[in-house]
Computed example of a mutant assay.
Amino acid sequence: MTADAPTGVGATALAVAGFRALESERADRLFEDPFAADFVAAIGGTVALEPKWVGLAHHVSIRTRFFDDQLLEAAEAGCRQVVLLAAGLDTRALRLAWPDGTTVFELDLPDVLAFKERVLAGRPPRCDRRTVVADLREDWPAALVAAGLRVDEPIAWLAEGILVYLTGDEVERLIGALRGVSPMGSRLALAHSLRNTRGVWRSTLTEEPVGWLARHGWHGVAHDTVGLSERYGRRVPGSGPSHAVLASAVRAQEPTG
Rank of each mutant, 00 (worst) to 15 (best):
T225N: 12
S193V: 14
A114Y: 08
P99D: 04
G238E: 14
R126Q: 08
S239R: 14
E23Q: 01
F66M: 12
L188M: 14
E172S: 03
T204H: 13
I62Y: 04
A114M: 07
P154F: 02
L89A: 09
G180I: 09
E170W: 04
V151L: 00
L49K: 08
T91G: 00
T91P: 00
L174W: 09
R92M: 13
G161A: 02
H59D: 10
H192R: 05
E25I: 04
R126E: 06
F66W: 12
A41H: 09
A37M: 04
D108W: 11
G199P: 02
P6L: 00
G18S: 03
L178A: 09
P34E: 04
R130K: 14
W201T: 15
W212V: 01
A214K: 03
R187K: 08
A11S: 15
R65W: 06
A74W: 04
H59Y: 15
T12V: 05
G211N: 03
P237T: 09
A13I: 05
E254G: 07
L174S: 07
Y232R: 13
R118T: 13
H223Y: 15
R202W: 14
A97R: 04
G199K: 03
L163V: 10
V181G: 01
T91V: 09
W157L: 00
V119A: 02
T197C: 02
D38L: 10
R137S: 02
G148A: 03
A5Y: 08
V47Q: 00
A252P: 08
A146W: 05
L107N: 04
E106R: 00
A177I: 00
A142T: 07
V60F: 13
S182Y: 07
K52L: 09
A134V: 05
V112D: 12
D169L: 11
R123K: 11
V112L: 11
S203T: 01
V171L: 01
P237W: 02
V82S: 04
A11E: 06
G220A: 14
L205V: 10
R234G: 08
P209M: 11
G238D: 11
V132W: 05
W98D: 01
P110G: 13
A147G: 08
V210W: 13
R130F: 06
E50G: 12
A191K: 13
R198N: 14
E172F: 03
P255L: 03
R150F: 01
A189L: 05
G211Y: 00
E76Y: 03
A57L: 00
A177L: 08
H59M: 14
L188H: 06
T131S: 13
D33N: 04
A77I: 01
W218I: 02
V83R: 01
E50S: 09
A15Q: 13
R118K: 09
V60E: 01
E23K: 02
V112H: 10
A146V: 08
R235K: 07
R130T: 11
P255F: 06
R123I: 12
R137G: 15
V250Q: 06
G217E: 09
L71E: 00
V145H: 05
V16D: 05
